[in-house]
């Protein structure tokens, strides 16, 4: 399959270049979080300081935004875990009319541009004369998070042999016991991985949230407002570094947990 004998230098340069292009910008944010400059993005940095970290820590609006994001992501993930695994189990265990339609329905919220999902939910809210609330954000997030759980669980189920389930039933276990002692342990790490990806997806989402949040600010909405009108540049840099760290952890863990499923 691979020919390691001869690697054209141009190919190596192009690959290294593209990978640097993908990763250097994030390193630059890290660098800027230590700058002493609070009005511009001057490079080279005029000086280095650690003072923005305690400044960001003391900001009440940031804590509020963070707490809202965590609450939304937590509940959206719980809903996505329930719905996603139910669909995966139903689709895996039986063939029925409309099976393809359901798997299509699961993918639709992320296949369509986020703006379509956002404005669709916004239209429904306006038709039903509903006000924006915590729950309107959760509904939007849970809708596009279902697919990550579904994908992980169905990939795991396809790898798990059905004979274990049959053996459990043959030995007199009922469906609930079989689920508890055979199916759940088999899909546990896939659920964990799907849940973590769903959390990361929700924690970072801004497009759909813009349409369903009204005046509420999740952490991404807070960052977006700073992007449009930079008022607290140094604090934004610190928040950005924090977000990079907090989203990288679940992604790396999820990848570890499911690397054999692919």
């Amino acid at each position: 399959m691979t020919n390691t004998s001869r690697k054209p230098p141009a190919l190596i340069i192009a690959t290294v270049g593209a990978l640097l292009f993908l990763h250097v910008p994030l390193a630059i944010i890290l660098l800027y979080s230590f700058t002493t400059d609070d009005r511009t993005y001057t490079f080279p940095l005029p000086g280095l300081t650690l003072r923005w970290f305690p400044t960001a820590w003391a900001r009440a609006d940031l804590w509020q935004a963070l707490w809202l994001s965590v609450k939304v992501a937590g509940v959206a993930t719980a809903i996505a875990l329930t719905l996603g695994s139910l669909i995966a189990l139903a689709i895996y265990r039986s063939k029925f009319f409309g099976r393809e339609a359901i798997s299509f329905l699961v993918i639709l919220p992320i296949a369509l541009p986020g703006i379509v999902t956002g404005i669709a939910l916004r239209s429904a809210l306006s038709l039903l004369d509903l006000n924006f609330s915590y729950w309107t954000i959760v509904v939007g997030h849970a809708t596009f998070c279902v697919v990550t759980v579904y994908n992980n669980v169905i990939a795991r189920l396809r790898r798990t042999s059905a004979s274990q389930i049959e053996a459990s039933m043959d030995l007199g276990a009922n469906s609930f016991q079989t689920f508890r002692y055979i199916v759940l342990p088999a899909i546990a790490t896939a659920l964990l991985a799907g849940g973590m990806l769903a959390f990361a997806l929700s924690f970072d989402e801004v497009i759909v949230t813009t349409f369903t949040a009204g005046q509420q600010a999740t952490l991404p909405i807070w960052i977006f407002s700073q992007l449009v009108r930079p008022r607290d540049r140094p604090v934004t840099n610190v928040v950005a570094v924090f977000v990079i760290a907090i989203t990288a952890i679940p992604i790396l863990l999820a990848h570890r947990l499911t690397s054999k499923d692919a």
Binding site: P25, I29, L227, T247
Partner: peptide
């Protein structure tokens, strides 16, 4: 993993990085 990580990591922060990089007084101009 090096390709997958940016795909899943914060889209907003990745856009923000370029605001710093492309600024008139920023690193590219320098």
């Amino acid at each position: 993993l090096a390709v997958l990580l940016p795909l899943w990591s914060s889209y907003l922060v990745r856009v923000y990085a370029w605001k710093l990089i492309l600024a008139k007084e920023g690193i590219v101009s320098w």
